[in-house]
C-alpha cells in the first residue's frame, strides 16, 4: 500500500473542501473495496479522507412515498430496515445476496455504488488492463472471461460491475445525491454509470471532488424480488442476477421494472424487456420474448456465452415467480 495522509472529516462541508483541495485524494467509508484496491496498488491516493463520522446514516421516509437513504448507512442496516423490507423487498434481498455479513456490516451505501470490477486482469498488475492503465490493452478478451460482461461491452473492456445492491437500485429508478464545493446535484442512477467504450477507466458520472451523500428511491407498489445465480450457494459474485418488480392485473402486466447484474459494465436496466412486457399477458412466452429482446444485442466470448442463455432463463424464472405470487399461486419449494 502506498503511504497516504489521513484526514477524518467531521462534517460534509469539511469533507468536500478537503477533497477539492487535494489533487489525489479519495474518500473512505467502510473500506471493504478501497482498502483491498490500495493494498493491491490499484488505487494509490495521496490523501484518504475518512467520512465515516459524517451524519449521513439516516433512512427517512419521503413525502411522496419514497425513501431517502444516507450514503453512510451500512448495507446490513439498510437490508434489515423495516421500510426497505416491506416496500422494497428487491433491495433488501439484493443486499443480502451480496458479500458476507461481515462485509455488509462495514460497507456503506455510497461505497457500494462505487465498487470497482473484480475482473482478475484488472486486479493483476502484470496483466494488460485498459481500466487500470488506459491504453494498455485488455487481457480478459482472449483470456479467462467466464465472469465477464455480454452487454454494453467494448473492444477495450468487458468487465462487469460487481454490485448486487445497485442492480436493485437500477430497477427502482433511484437517484444519487452528490455534493461538492460547487453545491448539490442529483444524478438518476440511469445516468450515474458509464459504459466502457474507449474509456473504461471512467466509470461513473461522479467528479473526483464529489461526495455521494444520499440515495433516493421513489415509491414502489409492485411486488418485487431479486434472484442471484452464482457458483456457490453464498458468498460469490453473480454470474447473472435479476432485480424485478412486476404488477399483474387481470393477467396483464401493468407495471414492470427489470434490471440485470453480472452481465454488463454497469447495473443493467432492461428497458427493451420492459417495453415488450408492459401490456403483454403475464405468461412464460411473454417473459421469454422480453428476455430475448433484452439479450438480443449481447456479445458472448468463448467462456461467457452461456450468460446470454442463463440471463434469459433467470429473467423468465424471476418474472414467473413474481407473477405466480401476484396471481396467488403457491410458492414453489
Amino acid at each position: 500500500m502506498k503511504p497516504f495522509a489521513y484526514v477524518s472529516a467531521p462534517d460534509v462541508a469539511t469533507a468536500v473542501r478537503v477533497i477539492a483541495a487535494e489533487p489525489n485524494a479519495k474518500f473512505i467509508g467502510g473500506g471493504t473495496n478501497l482498502v483491498d484496491l490500495m493494498r493491491e496498488d490499484i488505487e494509490q491516493p495521496d490523501t484518504v479522507v475518512d467520512i465515516t463520522r459524517l451524519p449521513l446514516t439516516e433512512i427517512e421516509e419521503l413525502p411522496g412515498g419514497g425513501v431517502r437513504v444516507g450514503a453512510l448507512v451500512r448495507n446490513s442496516h439498510l437490508a434489515a430496515h423495516r421500510l426497505i423490507r416491506t416496500r422494497y423487498p428487491v433491495l433488501s434481498q439484493a443486499i443480502l445476496a451480496g458479500a458476507s455479513a461481515q462485509l455488509r456490516n462495514m460497507a456503506t451505501v455510497g461505497g457500494n455504488l462505487l465498487q470497482r470490477t473484480r475482473c482478475p486482469y484488472f486486479y493483476d498488475g502484470a496483466a494488460a488492463c485498459n481500466k487500470r492503465v488506459p491504453g494498455s490493452g485488455c487481457d480478459a478478451i482472449g483470456g479467462f472471461n467466464r465472469n465477464h460482461a455480454v452487454l454494453g461491452v467494448s473492444d477495450d473492456c468487458i468487465a462487469t460491475h460487481p454490485s448486487d445492491m445497485c442492480v436493485a437500485l437500477a430497477a427502482l429508478d433511484a437517484t444519487v445525491e452528490v455534493q461538492s464545493v460547487r453545491g448539490l446535484r442529483r444524478v438518476p442512477l440511469a445516468d450515474f454509470y458509464r459504459l466502457p467504450g474507449g474509456t473504461p477507466h471512467l466509470e461513473t458520472a461522479l467528479e473526483p471532488d464529489e461526495l455521494i451523500t444520499a440515495v433516493e428511491v421513489p415509491e414502489l407498489t409492485a411486488p418485487s424480488s431479486y434472484r442471484k445465480v452464482r457458483d456457490r450457494a453464498s458468498y460469490a459474485f453473480a454470474l447473472v442476477s435479476v432485480a424485478a418488480a412486476l404488477e399483474v392485473t387481470d393477467g396483464v402486466v401493468t407495471d414492470v421494472r427489470l434490471a440485470l447484474g453480472g452481465v454488463a459494465a454497469k447495473p443493467w436496466r432492461a428497458r427493451q424487456a420492459e417495453a415488450v412486457l408492459l401490456g403483454a399477458p403475464a405468461t412464460d412466452e411473454s417473459f421469454r420474448r422480453a428476455a430475448e429482446a433484452e439479450l438480443e444485442p449481447a456479445v458472448g466470448r468463448p467462456d461467457n456465452t452461456f450468460k446470454i442463455e442463463l440471463a434469459q432463463r433467470t429473467i423468465v424464472a424471476t418474472l414467473r415467480r413474481l407473477s405466480d405470487r401476484s396471481l396467488g399461486v403457491g410458492r414453489m419449494a
Partner: peptide, 10 residues
C-alpha cells in the same frame, strides 16, 4: 467485521 479490510485509524 473483517479486520483485514479495516484501517485501524478508522
Amino acid at each position: 467485521i473483517n479486520s483485514c479490510l479495516a484501517l485501524a485509524v478508522q
